[in-house]
Amino acid sequence: MPRFDCPAIAASEITPRHAYLNRRNFMAGAAGLIGGALAAPSLLSAAPLKAASSPFSTNEKPTDKQYATTYNNYYEFGTGKDDPAANAGSLTTSPWTVKVDGLVNNPADYQLEDFIKPSKLEDRVYRHRCVEAWSMVIPWVGFPLSDIIKRADPKASAKYVAFETLMRPEEMPGLKSFLPVLDWPYREGLRMDEAMNPLTILAVGMYGETLPNQNGAPLRLVVPWKYGFKGAKSIVRISFVDKEPPTAWNLQAPSEYGFYSNVNPERDHPRWSQATEQVIGGGLFSARKDTLMFNGYGEQVAGLYTGMDLQKYY
């Protein structure tokens, strides 16, 4: 069994932990329990995860979990902030395969469990800044993306890492919208040095439990110094490539969403300011907060962009 698999859950514990899940999800979880130990971990929604603490965590107070799991952008489930929580319950996250391919010596198709097993899970409490000028603090559970890169053993020609996420219209109502909101499937990418940075993680959980579907279950990217949309959700493929890969929002509006998309209060979105952010969960009277360069992670990542004009490479 993988490290993050859940131990048997006492019946008395189920209701409170699942209180925020919708009925369908709950029923799926209950069915999994009835099925016994055969059930895959992701079917047991919100299974607890054991993880070590990390020096990269901020000691800011995490956003109320209720908000982090109900105020989401996951356009495959609809463009409204509450759509993902309402619609993602139907997503099947088990079985789940992750393809690692491209310019690597060890390409492979992994079952999720095998993909995660060699890594040591860590708690990473990160600031999360959305391009829409709001922010949260999220306690992720995950492991460095560099684990995966080392295992894949990229060839010298591999310069970028590309991520492709699940496109399954029968479970994702947002993919059936009248006008496609994005050029599906959702794709993201990082430069190799960004991908290798110790801050960059693949998350399998948040708030000490497996990821809720609306937050990108079962596996998502988290790059805390970039705008939230860089964090591809429900990843099915990781490819190593020699050229800057196409990315979903950049394809949609290249003048608004660059490949880098580093949090930068001095480079406004063409249509709105990025100088400040609304703090989610702060309530009706909370003041906007000043946005920090690289979302406050400059010490760890500013060196990646030495000599680059960040107004041009936004």
Binding site: Y75, T79, E132, S177, F178, V181, L182, W249, Q252, R271
Partner: peptide, 8 residues
């Protein structure tokens, strides 16, 4: 103009 992309 206030939203991202072209939602319905």
């Amino acid at each position: 103009l206030s939203v991202k992309s072209w939602p319905n």
